[in-house]
């Protein structure tokens, strides 16, 4: 369980987050959406302890009951893995060496072929020996995803449910691989883990999210199920343009850019 209350954050004197409060349950996918500069990535960085929250009264930020600001990184790493928007690697490590970093940080045993299997799972079969620098941007993103999956290889750990925090995991991927990432997130949640991710694509959000957090100007404008948050009024208010949420007969909500005229 991720519990957040009265979470505010300032960087260089500028308030970026205002009194955020919500909770995310294991077994669910929580999507953070919102316009550019609304604080999605900042919120994710605060949730992972990367940037300290303002110590205001009532602040609460805990994961599986651990106060994130006070828990040793080594302990957190055993049940939580974090994927950044993009990762620069300093030296010519191979894909397998990158994935191994996640393997070493996570907890629990691992099958000897886990690295190869994970690389195959992100559609890079047999690429373990290739140097990271020679992959394309989208391939690099998938290598990093495999590393994160290696770290969170158990959706349920001895420390409680495992957690994936993903910052725009589909940003540099083609549509096929976007769906692949969504499938991976779904099966992690279905197996008992928790997923919190920043998404830009409202259609993907509608497709996979169990809970949606809509950010606007550093505040949580709305939270709830897809049908509660992805509404004409709320999206229009957040994104500053008229948006009509459509509904195809056989599936969930979908959004046409043309309907924003």
């Amino acid at each position: 369980m991720l519990e957040v209350a009265q979470l505010s954050l300032a960087l260089s004197g500028r308030r970026l987050l205002h009194e955020i409060g919500f909770s995310a349950r294991p077994g669910q996918i929580t999507a953070i959406i919102g316009p550019n500069g609304s604080g999605k990535t900042t919120l994710l960085r605060a949730l992972t302890g990367e940037v300290p929250a303002l110590p205001l009264p009532g602040l609460r930020l805990s994961l599986n009951g651990h106060d994130i600001a006070r828990t040793k990184p080594r302990i957190l790493a055993q049940f939580r893995a974090v994927l950044a928007q993009s990762t620069q690697v300093a030296f010519p490590y191979t894909a397998a060496e990158i994935v191994r970093l996640g393997l070493d940080a996570g907890s629990g045993g691992a099958a000897p072929d886990l690295i190869d299997r994970l690389l195959a799972e992100v559609d890079l079969p047999g690429a373990g020996g290739r140097p990271y620098h020679q992959f394309s941007g989208g391939e690099q993103a998938r290598v990093q995803l495999a590393r994160v999956l290696a770290q969170a290889r158990q959706p349920v750990t001895p420390e409680g449910p495992g957690w994936l925090f993903l910052d725009e995991p589909v940003a540099s991927l083609d549509i096929g691989h976007q769906l692949m990432v969504m499938r991976i997130a779904r099966s992690f949640a279905d197996a008992g883990g928790g997923v919190v991710m920043v998404l830009h694509d409202l259609n993907l959000t509608a497709m996979v999210a169990d809970q949606v957090l809509l950010m606007h100007a550093g505040r949580l404008l709305a939270q709830g199920r897809v049908d509660q948050v992805l509404t004409d009024a709320l999206l229009g208010q957040a994104f500053g343009c008229p948006i009509r949420v459509g509904r195809a007969p056989a599936s969930g909500p979908w959004i046409l850019p043309q309907s924003a005229a």
Binding site: R45, P73, R74, A77, R80, A90, F91, Y93, L101, D104
Partner: peptide
Amino acid sequence: ARGLNALALGEAQALHLGIRV
């Protein structure tokens, strides 16, 4: 050694890999 390997991905990533950076 382990910390420097993790640090190659950046300070934030090293932190999330469990390193007291």
